[in-house]
Design a protein around this nucleic acid. Structure first.
Length: 307
DNA sequence: GTTGAGCGTT
């Protein structure tokens, strides 16, 4: 089947970007988010009613209205909490800026092919934005790559985008993350990671990523091997993570239970997260802020076949 | 079967 593209933009009047659909005519939310990080859905202006309409979203898959995307321009939806990113600098972003939360830091690149050189890394990452440093870590004696490296970007936005997706480098999938060793900017601790219990073995990391993307930008998904019936999902926004805790969610017909991720042993960055989470929960005795309150729009419904 | 890989010679 010939590849089809749909037109998507940040807003109705901006120049849209063409985004590929799948063979079955659907569009993956992850494909949209690859171009618009943090996207949680699409909407469009109905030619019939002239009102904005939401595009049906089921488990990370966007379905064409009337089974045909047509030539309409679709507009990206962001979780409510992310919306302020697009506003003028408000008090929140002013504080963030002052605290240096939007400063870049080195990112660790895990899973590199042995043959990948610093020039290869530079060439690859330059497609995302300006690169100011790359390293491939090597054995001092043999000079062989250790299979990981570091990269640093000029722009924080570039860094966010790079963290939010996987990377095909010289034929291998690699992950970019904030390194453990860094104590990080002295932001108040935030627990961005959730524990997903009662997982079944057929739920993949990609499916988890696609499912949870509808709540906010997903920066990491981890499933321990061998299978142990749980997983971890990390969001860029701790409020999204907190809001999900305590919920039972249906993924591929499986009821999974969300709770907060306990800090990994021996990690200073995450040890600090604890206090902030307790503080956060103290504002909501017995319960986290409800999902319904955060996402009171039509962007998410349980698939009817699963309720 | 509900708490996790790999982390940097300066």
């Amino acid at each position: 089947m010939a590849e089809l593209y749909i037109r998507v933009g940040e807003d109705e009047n901006e120049e849209p970007m063409e985004i590929p659909s799948e063979d079955d005519g659907t569009v993956l939310l992850s494909t949209v988010a690859a171009q618009f990080p943090g996207a949680c859905g699409l909407r469009y202006r109905s030619p019939a009613s002239q009102c904005m309409r939401g595009v049906r979203l089921v488990e990370g898959i966007l379905h064409a209205p009337e089974n045909d995307w047509g030539s309409l321009v679709y507009v990206v939806n962001y979780p409510k909490d992310n919306k302020r990113k697009m506003d003028e600098m408000d008090a929140v972003s002013a504080v963030k800026m002052k605290r240096g939360i939007d400063r870049t830091s080195d990112l660790i690149i895990l899973g590199l092919p042995w043959k990948t050189s610093e020039q290869d890394l530079k060439d690859y990452f330059a497609t995302f934005g300006e690169v100011i440093m790359v390293q491939v870590k090597r054995d001092v004696k043999t000079g062989n790559s250790k299979g990981f490296g570091f990269v640093r970007f000029t722009e924080y936005e570039t860094q966010s985008k790079v963290i939010s997706q996987r990377h095909m480098i010289d034929g291998r999938w690699c992950d970019c993350k904030l390194p453990n060793s860094k104590t990080g900017p002295d932001e108040p601790m935030r627990n961005c990671k959730i524990f997903v219990g009662r997982c079944t073995e057929d739920i993949t990391t990609d499916e988890l990523r696609q499912f949870f993307m509808q709540y906010g930008e997903v920066t990491d998904v981890f499933i321990p091997k061998p299978f142990r019936a749980f997983a971890f999902v990390t969001f860029s926004d701790d409020q999204v993570a907190s809001a999900l805790c305590g919920e039972d969610l249906i993924i591929k017909g499986v009821s999974v239970h969300i709770s907060n991720a306990e800090p990994k042993h021996n990690n200073s960055r995450q040890m600090m997260d604890r206090g902030a989470v307790n503080q956060l929960f103290s504002n909501f005795p017995g319960r986290s802020p409800s999902l319904a309150a955060m996402f009171d729009q039509t962007q998410y419904r349980y698939p009817s076949s699963h309720v």
